[in-house]
Amino acid sequence: QTQNSSVTAHLMLLDVDYFKHINDNYGHDEGDYFLSQMSDLLRQMSGPEDTPARFGGDELAIIVMNRSDEDVIQLAQNIQSAVQQIRLSTDSAFFTTVSIGIASSESAQSVSDWFGVADKALYLVKRHGRNGIQLF
Score class of each variant (00 low, 15 high):
42 L>V: 13
42 L>S: 08
42 L>Q: 10
42 L>P: 09
42 L>G: 07
44 Q>W: 00
45 M>D: 01
45 M>P: 00
46 S>I: 03
46 S>N: 07
46 S>E: 14
46 S>L: 08
46 S>V: 08
47 G>I: 02
48 P>L: 04
48 P>S: 10
49 E>K: 11
49 E>D: 15
50 D>I: 02
50 D>F: 02
50 D>V: 02
50 D>W: 01
50 D>Y: 03
51 T>P: 01
51 T>K: 07
52 P>S: 00
52 P>M: 06
52 P>D: 09
53 A>L: 14
53 A>R: 13
54 R>F: 09
54 R>I: 08
55 F>I: 14
55 F>N: 12
56 G>Y: 03
57 G>Q: 10
58 D>Y: 00
58 D>Q: 13
58 D>W: 01
60 L>H: 13
61 A>C: 04
62 I>P: 04
62 I>A: 13
63 I>Q: 10
67 R>N: 05
67 R>S: 04
68 S>T: 12
68 S>M: 01
69 D>G: 05
70 E>S: 10
71 D>C: 13
72 V>S: 05
72 V>W: 06
72 V>H: 07
73 I>H: 03
73 I>D: 04
74 Q>L: 09
75 L>P: 12
77 Q>G: 07
78 N>K: 14
79 I>Y: 10
80 Q>F: 14
80 Q>I: 13
80 Q>P: 15
80 Q>M: 15
80 Q>E: 15
81 S>C: 04
81 S>P: 00
81 S>M: 09
83 V>Y: 05
83 V>S: 06
84 Q>W: 07
86 I>P: 03
87 R>K: 14
87 R>V: 05
87 R>E: 04
88 L>V: 07
89 S>I: 02
89 S>T: 14
92 S>V: 14
92 S>C: 15
92 S>Q: 15
93 A>K: 13
93 A>E: 15
93 A>V: 08
93 A>P: 02
94 F>W: 11
94 F>S: 08
94 F>D: 06
94 F>L: 09
95 F>K: 00
95 F>I: 01
95 F>W: 06
96 T>C: 15
97 T>E: 08
97 T>N: 08
98 V>G: 02
98 V>P: 04
99 S>I: 10
99 S>L: 05
100 I>E: 04
100 I>V: 10
100 I>R: 05
100 I>L: 06
102 I>H: 08
103 A>H: 01
104 S>E: 04
104 S>G: 13
105 S>H: 07
105 S>D: 11
106 E>F: 05
106 E>L: 14
107 S>W: 01
107 S>R: 06
107 S>A: 10
107 S>D: 15
